[in-house]
Simulated assay, not measured.
Amino acid sequence: MNFQNILLENEGQISTITINRPQSLNALNGATISELSEALSQLEQDSNCRVIIITGSGEKSFVAGADIKEFSDFGQDKAEELARNGQNSLFNKIENLRKPVIAAVNGFALGGGLELAMACHIRYASENAKLGLPEVTLGLIPGYGGTQRLPKLVGKGLANELIFSAKMISAARAKEIGLVNEVFSLEELLSKTKELATLISKNSPQGISKAIAAVNASDSAEGYELEIKSFGKLFEMEDKKEGVSAFLEKRKPNF
């Protein structure tokens, strides 16, 4: 597929998706959501890819929000369809992908942009990043999972404060409340993200895949049972055999 709104770069076992709509501060429109979904499907099936990074082009914006012009005249049914399709095709897909996805937040991450970052498994940000959910200033609420994922990351009280006030917060504040993992200079952001991705890529893909599913189930009643079942299943899989053999033989595993 020839992508018009994103760039896809493969570097060893790390793949980087760059949202490339600088003229609109990388705002998410339908075409971009579709291309991101397609790229993620390709990478999930690519045995050479072990970790995925999502970032934005330029130095100002990760994703400045959804492209409001696309849905400004929607009614209830079309708006619900927009939110449901976006959730199913992209945001939930990222969260449940079998490979780790890291957001490298290089500037504004607002509305759908912050929701995209929150769907990723890990978030690194640049010092100039600004994060927020401004939907209530439009008479709306976040529609791509913001009301669900933000409380899990920062707690209900802080989530309510950010959503109700629509204020933007700095990268430093985002790290303080647990919304992002680490903050770096803009110049260092991508290299530091790739350092983490490289570290992750050396570990068991089968183990990481099961860990993603187990962590995602951590707030459900089935979480412990899923962890137990996943732990057991891994004992029958190749990565466990290689990992344990390598440990006993005092060598590095070759996953």
Rank of each mutant, 00 (worst) to 15 (best):
Q76A: 05
A103F: 13
N88V: 11
K93L: 01
N85H: 04
A109K: 00
G75I: 05
G75N: 14
Q87I: 08
G111C: 15
S89D: 14
G113I: 14
A119I: 13
E81V: 00
G111M: 08
A83W: 02
F91A: 00
G86L: 04
M118A: 10
Q76G: 01
E115Y: 02
F91W: 08
I122P: 08
L114V: 02
V101Y: 00
L90F: 15
G113K: 14
R98D: 02
F74R: 07
R123E: 11
G113M: 14
E80I: 09
G112M: 06
L116S: 10
N128K: 15
A119E: 08
L116T: 14
A79I: 07
K78W: 04
F74L: 13
R123N: 15
K99P: 12
A109G: 07
A103G: 02
K78I: 10
N96K: 04
G86C: 03
L97M: 15
E95D: 08
L110M: 12
F91P: 09
L82K: 04
A104G: 11
L82R: 04
I94L: 13
A119Q: 13
F91R: 04
L114H: 01
F74Q: 09
A79G: 06
S89W: 04
P100L: 05
K93E: 02
V101L: 12
C120T: 15
I102L: 05
L90I: 00
D73P: 08
Y124T: 08
L97T: 11
A129P: 00
D73M: 13
L90Y: 15
E115L: 00
L97K: 09
Q76P: 00
F108H: 07
N128M: 12
A103P: 06
F108I: 09
L110H: 06
E81Y: 02
G113Q: 11
F108P: 00
A79Y: 06
A109D: 04
A83N: 08
A104T: 09
K78Q: 12
N128C: 12
G86T: 08
G107L: 03
A104R: 02
K78E: 13
I102M: 04
I122N: 10
N96T: 15
G111V: 12
N128G: 09
N85I: 00
I94E: 14
Q87H: 01
G112T: 10
E80T: 08
H121E: 10
N85M: 01
I122Y: 15
A129F: 00
G75R: 05
M118T: 14
S126Q: 06
F74N: 13
Q76M: 04
A109Q: 03
Q76T: 06
R84N: 05
A129L: 06
G113E: 03
E115S: 03
E95L: 07
A79W: 06
A125G: 05
G112A: 14
L82T: 10
N92H: 15
R84H: 03
G112P: 06
L82G: 01
L116N: 12
Q76N: 00
L114E: 01
G75D: 13
A103C: 02
A129H: 02
